[in-house]
Design a protein around this nucleic acid. Structure first.
Lengths: 159, 159
DNA sequence: TTGTTTTTTGCATATTTATTCATTTATTTT
DNA sequence: AAAATAAATGAATAAATATGCAAAAAACAA
């Protein structure tokens, strides 16, 4: 999925560099082989919750707004990702299967990602039910999870 | 000072309401008897660190960005303001005199306001030295303190 | 597969926001 | 106080961002 890749690249770039306009970001993406138009970028920035705020030095920069950004503060991603075995879409919800005993910590990680898209999770021993918010589609949850856990969809295929 | 009043009004409005554009904010201000142009508003929003971020519902809203906003989380403003007795500009710095024994708590409050403009503070028993960042002028620090402690300049005159 | 529906995208443009420049207002200095 | 300097402001406009619409791509169903 080309879009997911772009969303991730955008998040990464604005976290690491001072990006003051979409045009500049557009060129940075181009440098990474990711081509799109300003229109798409504007939409994507909204989708991931990135805004343009004063940088305190007389200029502006793009940053993730609070809620989506919070996942960065959470440690343990490296433990979480390897535990995930399978992702299953089901009735507008999503089921994630993990290694035995890992559901709880993984669910905690997802909960605390602060992503708007996810209303909440319920975890058993090796199974997590991810409940998207009203109006959020399954593809949106996939994009969202790919942001929370980069590389997730490369690792596990949706069954 | 008309500007300080406007800055405060802007912070208040965007904290309390979903404001999606400067034009809308312009009208809200007008409703409170505060008249200015969009150009001024744009500058003021940058000055107070307010940015336009996705609201998670497909639209946008203005919000204070993290750092300047943090002062809202701090309690004790009501104890701090009455303790302040005098403000003195000095050598590009600022000295605040407080009631005896109150410098430390007041300085703590200012420190934790998270305002970009202030590099730091040093407090004795009844005296605080406020050190602005490079490039920040004394008038900017005054505006800044008026935001951190609304009503400050009505209460104490700069000597 | 093929047809159907949904999502994504670019183009062109509308909307919104930032800035330049000239003027006014406030502040500081002498 | 008057002169000099700095800050704030508006009008006009430049720059940047968002969006309507049509086309293309992707996801889905039969």
């Amino acid at each position: 999925m080309q879009k997911t890749k772009r969303l991730l690249a955008i998040e990464k770039i604005i976290a690491e560099e001072n990006i003051s306009s979409q045009d500049i970001l557009l060129k940075k993406l181009k440098g990474k082989g990711i081509i799109c138009t300003q229109a798409t970028l504007s939409r994507n920035l909204r989708q991931i919750g990135a805004g343009r705020i004063p940088d305190g030095k007389g200029g502006y920069r793009y940053l993730m707004s609070d809620i989506p950004r919070s996942y960065r503060k959470i440690t343990g991603k490296l433990q979480v990702l390897p535990a995930i075995q399978e992702i299953i879409d089901a009735k507008g919800l999503m089921v994630i299967r993990t290694l035995p005993g890992n559901a709880s910590s993984t669910a905690y990680y997802i909960d605390n990602s602060g992503r708007f898209e996810i209303a909440g999770t319920i975890a058993g021993d090796d199974t997590i039910l991810v409940i998207p918010r009203d109006g959020i589609t399954i593809p949106q949850v996939h994009s969202c999870l790919e942001i929370v856990l980069p590389g997730l969809h490369d690792k596990v295929k949706n069954k």
